[in-house]
Design a protein around this nucleic acid. Sequence first.
DNA 1: TCGTGGATTTACCAAATGGTAAAATTTTAT
DNA 2: ATAAAATTTTACCATTTGGTAAATCCACGA
Lengths: 207, 207
Amino acid sequence: MPDGDQKKPSRIQTRNRLVILDAALNVFSQHGYRGATLDQIASEAGLSKPNILYYFQGKEDIHLTLLSQLMETWLDPLVELDPDGDPQTEILDYVQRKLDMALELPRESRLFAGEILQGAPRMGPHLESDLKPLFDQKCEVIAGWSAAGKIAPINPQHLIFSIWATTQHYADFAAQVTVLLGADTDPYQTASEHLRSMFTAILRNKA
Amino acid sequence: MPDGDQKKPSRIQTRNRLVILDAALNVFSQHGYRGATLDQIASEAGLSKPNILYYFQGKEDIHLTLLSQLMETWLDPLVELDPDGDPQTEILDYVQRKLDMALELPRESRLFAGEILQGAPRMGPHLESDLKPLFDQKCEVIAGWSAAGKIAPINPQHLIFSIWATTQHYADFAAQVTVLLGADTDPYQTASEHLRSMFTAILRNKA
DNA sequence: TCGTGGATTTACCAAATGGTAAAATTTTAT
DNA sequence: ATAAAATTTTACCATTTGGTAAATCCACGA
């Protein structure tokens, strides 16, 4: 009997929890936490509302589960940034990985964006405990490269912000991008080229 | 008797409509359209719920009014980009105006971001009719500068996306920025310098 | 000062919301 | 096959939601 189950989950449990989380990702990423309803999640999951509450303790539990799972995926591209690799390559590859992730997981990107937009009320602690240490660590790596003259002098913190902003923009603001580029245009190719050329210029910059 | 009033508004009307819109901006920008409640808006405005519905036809009317008013303000910095000015100066000044606006009007930035994040269900038409023509026009200006060799070769559409993304990031993701930079650090000065140096590098780029 | 129309409050309402209890059904191990 | 456990459904419930009707209050010009 699930909810706060300790034993290993049955096949049904595993399947239904996945189905519910997938449905919840659709709804939460589209309407935000307060705008999402259990009925909508239930309907999208093809289950009854009480059935959903059999697998999760409540609305907040579902949301929190999604955010926790997402955090790992989300930090992954930054984790892979290798202090011993070639600086230029490492950063450009990081940009590419972030862009790929935004385009492959737009719902996740929007869920994250929505939570931050609302002041991270349910994710503040995760930011402090998971994101900040990694961020600080990688900032030092980039600062080291910068100091050693391997890349242009640059503020590492704001560089990372710029990478996040420009890549996630294509997921979070997809509705706007689509209108402005035309529904037929696929932004991926051009976006990828633009970002590569842009961050190349920044890392080369001599002033 | 207001609501869809035709005659010129009284002092009380003007004041209360402003108070309501300000309160609504707080609530909508923090919780999104569906997550916002009339009770909350009323409470924040210091008025009763029926009193609010005396001035606006309903929740959607308030939201729509906010978005319409916002659109003008939001396009303004781009309107000011002068085709006859010095390209480098014009673009860097545009970046600066966008950053200033994000830091001075964070609620407006978040309201806008939230609406786009949710697929622009109530603003799609405005994007097509107001934003797109201006966007296309300014893209051609930049493309002209690029073709004339006055700035580096660059994709104008994605350049503008990058400007929007990097500047609005400081308003929309303020919760994250605050955690990562430390609550005591004021991001404005460093962000401004970073963005100026970054976009300078891009516009100078020879490849 | 008094009437009139604008402004506000009180008292509601139907629908939707997150959630629960318990009965009914299905799965699983024996 | 059958009992026990896991799963799902049915029938609710209290609260909140957007919104309305009507009574009341109040400002202000004649």
